[in-house]
C-alpha cells in the first residue's frame, strides 16, 4: 500500500500532497533546517545497477531527516553467488524499515514489493518505470510554471528504453499536460504506453523532428540515448547524437520554457545552455532530495509538519 512501483500507486491527490510536502522540505534538503523526522529508521538502498543521483539523493534525503542508510551493491555479494531477489528481499526486510530498489530487470520492483511487507520504492526497473524521478520532474515543472495543466511538454530522445519518460508521460497526462514525443522510429515510446495515454484521452503527438517542437514547448525534457540498452553497437551509432540543444536554440523558444534532463548527459545538451535561464537540469537534480524525503516519509507513515521553521 505504501509501495511506489509505478505512478498508478499514487492518486492525483497524493501526488499533489507529496509535492506540497516536498516544497516545505526544501530548507531541510539544503541542510538549513534540522528536522529529524526519521530518526531511528533505516533505509536499504538496493542498487543492482549503477546510479549516481538516485542513490545519493535517497541517501542524503534519509540522512538529512535523521535516518540511516544501508547501501547494497550486487557485486561480490550473495547475489553474485546466485541468490534470488526473493531471498535477498527477505533478508533486507529483517534489517531495514524501507527499501529502495534499482534493478536491471523489468518488473523487479513489483516483484520485491510483493515479496516483503516493508514499503518498497522503485528507483528504476530495466526499461520499466522510475516513479521517484517522476515526482522530482513534476516538482521541477510546477516550480517553474506554477502548474502542470495545459502545458506543452516535449519528451525527447530514447523514449523506448528510457524509463523516466515512461513514468513521467503517465503522470503528465493525468494532470492535463499535452505531450509531444520526439524520437527516432527505433526508439519510439512502447506501444503499451502510447495505448494507455491515448485511451486516457490524452493529446499525444509523435514526431522525429525536434526543431519543429521547440517553438510551442513549455518544457523540453531531453534524455540520453542509453548505449547500455542497445543490442548492438551499429544500432546505437545510427541514433547517437541526433538530438542536441545549445544556447542558440533558445532564441526560437517561448519565454519561460524550461529544459530538463534526468542526467547524465552525454552531448545532447551543450554546456552553452547551462547559463541560459531555460536550463533547469541541475535544479532538477537537487529537487530529488526534497521529493525523496517526502516519499520516504510517506512510505514510513510519518507526517510532515505544516510549518517547517527556518
Amino acid at each position: 500500500m505504501s509501495d511506489v512501483v509505478t505512478m498508478d500507486d499514487l492518486s492525483n491527490e497524493e501526488i499533489l500532497s507529496i509535492l506540497d510536502d516536498s516544497e516545505r522540505l526544501v530548507p531541510v534538503a539544503r541542510g538549513d533546517v534540522h528536522l529529524p523526522l526519521l530518526q531511528g529508521k533505516v533505509l536499504a538502498n538496493m542498487f543492482y545497477e549503477n546510479s549516481t543521483r538516485t542513490r545519493m539523493s535517497f541517501e542524503t534525503a534519509m540522512k538529512r531527516l535523521g535516518g540511516s542508510v544501508l547501501n547494497f551493491t550486487s557485486v561480490g555479494t550473495s547475489v553474485a553467488k546466485g541468490e534470488t531477489l526473493y531471498d535477498t528481499m527477505q533478508m533486507v526486510e529483517g534489517y531495514a524499515d524501507i527499501a529502495v530498489i534499482r534493478h536491471p530487470r523489468q518488473g523487479a520492483a513489483q516483484y520485491s514489493a510483493d515479496a516483503v511487507d516493508i514499503p518498497v520504492l522503485n528507483a528504476g526497473d530495466g526499461a520499466g518505470n522510475h516513479p521517484t524521478q517522476t515526482m522530482l520532474d513534476l516538482f521541477t515543472i510546477r516550480e517553474a510554471h506554477g502548474t502542470i495543466e495545459g502545458l506543452n511538454v516535449v519528451l525527447v530522445g530514447d523514449l523506448r528504453y528510457g524509463r523516466t519518460v515512461h513514468s513521467l508521460s503517465h503522470a503528465l497526462i493525468r494532470f492535463g499536460a499535452k505531450l509531444t514525443l520526439v524520437s527516432p522510429e527505433a526508439l519510439s515510446m512502447p506501444d503499451e504506453i502510447v495505448s494507455d495515454l491515448r485511451s486516457a484521452g490524452a493529446e499525444v503527438f509523435e514526431t522525429s523532428d525536434l526543431g519543429d517542437a521547440v517553438p510551442d514547448a513549455d518544457v523540453i525534457y531531453m534524455t540520453r540515448i542509453q548505449k547500455e540498452r542497445f543490442p548492438d553497437e551499429d544500432e546505437y551509432a545510427k541514433v547517437a547524437g541526433i538530438y542536441m540543444l545549445d544556447a542558440n536554440d533558445m532564441h526560437g523558444a517561448k519565454d519561460g520554457m524550461i529544459v530538463m534532463h534526468p542526467l547524465p548527459r552525454v552531448g545532447e545538451l551543450h554546456p552553452s545552455l547551462d547559463s541560459t535561464p531555460n536550463a533547469r537540469y541541475f535544479q532538477q537534480a537537487f529537487n530529488g532530495v526534497p521529493t525523496r524525503m517526502a516519499l520516504l516519509c510517506r512510505g514510513l507513515g510519518v507526517t510532515i509538519p505544516k510549518e517547517v521553521n527556518t
Binding site: G82, T84, L85, Y86, H103, P104, R105, Q106, G107, A108, Q110, Y111, D114, A115, D125, G126, A127
Partner: peptide
C-alpha cells in the same frame, strides 16, 4: 509465463 526476455520472472528460481 511472461515472454519478455528481460522480465524478473525469467529466473526460474524466483518463487513468486
Amino acid at each position: 509465463r511472461c515472454t519478455f526476455s528481460n522480465c524478473i520472472t525469467q529466473n526460474d528460481r524466483e518463487p513468486l
